[in-house]
């Protein structure tokens, strides 16, 4: 199947459906933010496990460049999902390291 067939074109826009059991909403939002210079991702109301996303592109963008942008979004989404995993596991430790780093200074006001 060609890439073009994988993405549903609606005029100049591309509609995809993301499975929320695979990708966290936070990761989807962060990936959308990161590719904002290439396309605008409009997140729509989710159904139980599915989130429809409509991508629009700059005026005059070719079909090929539109597909490249959506592909970049998917690649970014994988990275963001992995980042969420790492952050979930290491978040408390980051807070602990920072607290430990400044524990012997007089910068922390003790109530």
């Amino acid at each position: 199947m060609t890439e073009e067939a994988l993405f549903a074109f609606e005029g100049d826009a591309i509609r995809v459906t993301l499975d929320l059991r695979v990708y966290r909403l936070t990761a989807i939002k962060k990936a959308a933010y990161r590719v904002a210079d290439r396309c605008t991702a409009m997140l729509q109301s989710p159904s139980e496990h599915e989130l429809p996303v409509l991508f629009t592109f700059k005026a005059g963008a070719s079909k090929e460049s539109a597909i490249t942008s959506v592909r970049a979004f998917y690649q970014e989404l994988l990275d963001q999902e992995l980042r969420e995993e790492v952050a979930e596991e290491t978040g408390p430790m980051r807070a602990l390291i920072l607290a430990h780093a400044f524990s012997k200074t007089d910068l922390i006001r003790r109530e």
């Binding site: 990275d79 980042r83 790492v86 952050a87 596991e89 290491t90 978040g91 430790m93 980051r94």
Partner: peptide, 10 residues
């Protein structure tokens, strides 16, 4: 082993 906090990118 346990992971320590880090960031990554392409």
């Amino acid at each position: 082993y346990r992971l320590a906090p880090f960031r990554f990118g392409r």
